[in-house]
């Protein structure tokens, strides 16, 4: 399905983006500017406290910037009234700690975001099965998260993030809780799915090895972007 771009042609445009907490005592973002195109694979790297997760929260509309503007497909995200709908339909979120609901099976977890769509019960189930097949978990449909390995849980989370056909995937340290073997498998899966579906992948990591797989690396420090460069040879 072609993804409609706004007038600007950019998926995200950030201009002078700031975020402060505790009445300005903590400056998480100190004026960030960048633009991201549809289909890009961007890695945001930086040490703890550099503001990379805060930036991801802004992109995911999980929090509001204190100053500056953030546009999604040409329209201001701050002025958008239906942020829940934005989170449900436009983006997919992948968390470091997976955050699957423990009392729901893999199949059920993948269906959760689909409640915000008009899909019928059977359509939701059918789509969840397809997505779990796509991440190689067709034999684990009815397993609860406690019965899945870390890598399998993250694969369920990836399937969940794609449930509503998001055009942007935001991943916060998606391999942070995995061993290197599973980390590589998850990264390969994400890269493969991105190639197939052409979604924009924005990945936050402190692991430069993982960041090198992205086509573009944004490095942050103390709430500012210190470098934003194309990676000419993604590994």
């Amino acid at each position: 399905m072609p993804i409609p771009n706004g007038d600007s042609g950019w998926v995200f445009e950030a201009c002078g983006l700031k975020k402060q907490y505790d009445d300005g005592q903590v400056q998480a973002l100190r004026g960030v500017d960048f633009r991201i195109q549809q289909g890009e694979f961007v890695a945001i790297v930086g040490p703890s406290g550099s503001g990379k997760s805060t930036l991801l929260q802004m992109l995911g509309a999980l929090d509001h910037p204190s100053a500056g503007t953030l546009r999604y497909r040409g329209a201001s995200l701050q002025e958008r009234a239906d942020l829940a709908s934005y989170r449900a339909l436009e983006i997919g979120f992948i968390f470091q700690a997976f955050h699957l609901l423990p009392t729901f099976t893999a199949l059920e977890n993948v269906q959760i975001p689909m409640f915000e769509t008009h899909r019928s019960v059977s359509e939701r189930k059918h789509r969840a099965i397809e997505l779990l097949k796509a991440v190689g978990l067709e034999t684990r449909l009815h397993h609860f998260p406690a019965k899945l390995s870390g890598g399998e849980r993250q694969r369920v989370a990836i399937a969940r993030s794609l449930a509503n056909g998001a055009s942007v995937l935001l991943a916060d340290e998606p391999t942070g809780n995995l061993d290197s073997e599973n980390a590589n498998l998850i990264l390969d899966l994400l890269v493969g799915l991105r190639r197939e579906q052409n979604f924009t992948l924005i990945l936050v990591t402190h692991d430069l090895g993982i960041a090198r797989q992205a086509a573009r690396i944004i490095e942050m420090k103390d709430g500012r972007i210190v470098s934003d460069a194309l990676n000419k040879e993604p590994t």
Binding site: A84, S85, I112, P113
Partner: peptide, 16 residues
Amino acid sequence: TQEICVLLAIGWSRGR
């Protein structure tokens, strides 16, 4: 709490 925040993060409305 965590689960509800996750539900909100993945698109559930506050009304739901």
